[in-house]
């Protein structure tokens, strides 16, 4: 039986080399991780709701917060309406991605919507859900639902209902613009109010199948964060 000959490298040198390699390895993996993290986080500019006075909802007095958003069919239309934005893709988009809302408040959101539309895959999303009285104001008129083929996008907030945070579900169908109105840079103004619970993390997205996709009219824009989806943080204080 032959035995291996001794190594020419001393034990101390080996240990240093191994520890250096381990540190390097952890550093490489962490760098990859934090790069991905920061690449993702870049597109998550926060938009804070402004609190202005109080509101009475069902007998309770709550802080009243206001926040606004716009929806454009592409960045060119946005620039035509004095919203400066350059996107990687010629896709429709919401201007604000990460909304920060106060907890236990009445939030009134104003949406200016500039895009055209088609028919929803799921008609349920044509209903106004989760707002005060389950209604919204479209150009000043109170409505509780739209026709499923008159929708341009939806603004839908989801959370994980089994989480320990309060549940928050809001669905707002946004009325579409006709082609003629779009030519003239026309828009609808949609206003709705909903009540937030305690602090928590939620997501919002559009449930209208937009972007000329290859299946179920669901384009690439629906599969990526940043255009038709974002986050909602409800925070204390």
């Amino acid at each position: 039986m032959e035995t291996p000959t001794q190594s020419e490298v001393s034990g101390g040198k080996r240990l240093v080399s191994a520890i250096a390699f381990l540190v390097l390895g952890v550093a490489v993996v962490s760098t990859v991780g934090f790069t991905l993290h920061s690449v993702s986080a870049d597109s998550q500019k926060k938009s804070y709701a402004t609190v202005n006075g109080t509101a009475d909802v069902n007998g309770a007095t709550l802080k009243h917060a206001f926040v606004s958003e716009s929806v454009f069919p592409d960045d060119a239309t946005a620039r035509a309406n004095h919203v400066n934005r350059t996107n990687t893709h010629p896709w429709p988009f919401y201007t604000e991605e990460h909304l920060v809302l106060p907890a236990h408040s009445l939030v009134t959101m104003t949406l200016k919507v500039y895009d055209g539309g088609e028919k929803l895959n799921t008609n349920y999303f044509a209903k106004v859900l989760g707002t005060v009285d389950n209604t919204m104001l479209v150009d000043g008129q109170q409505v509780s639902s739209l026709a499923p083929d008159a929708v341009q996008h939806t603004f839908t907030i989801h959370g994980l209902p089994t989480s320990t945070q309060d549940s928050l579900f809001v669905n707002i169908p946004l009325p579409k613009m006709s082609d003629a109105e779009m030519e003239k840079n026309g828009f609808h103004t949609v206003v709705f109010s909903f009540v937030t619970g305690g602090a928590g993390e939620y997501v919002w997205n559009c449930e209208y199948p937009c972007g000329d996709g290859t299946y179920a009219k669901f384009g690439a824009v629906m599969g990526q964060n940043g255009y038709m989806s974002g986050k909602v943080s409800v925070v204390n204080g």
Binding site: L36, S163, V203, N225, G226
Partner: peptide, 11 residues
């Protein structure tokens, strides 16, 4: 941890 969001859903 829940609600971590270390990266976005796409990533």
């Amino acid at each position: 941890r829940p609600g971590g969001h270390f990266v976005t859903a796409t990533v």
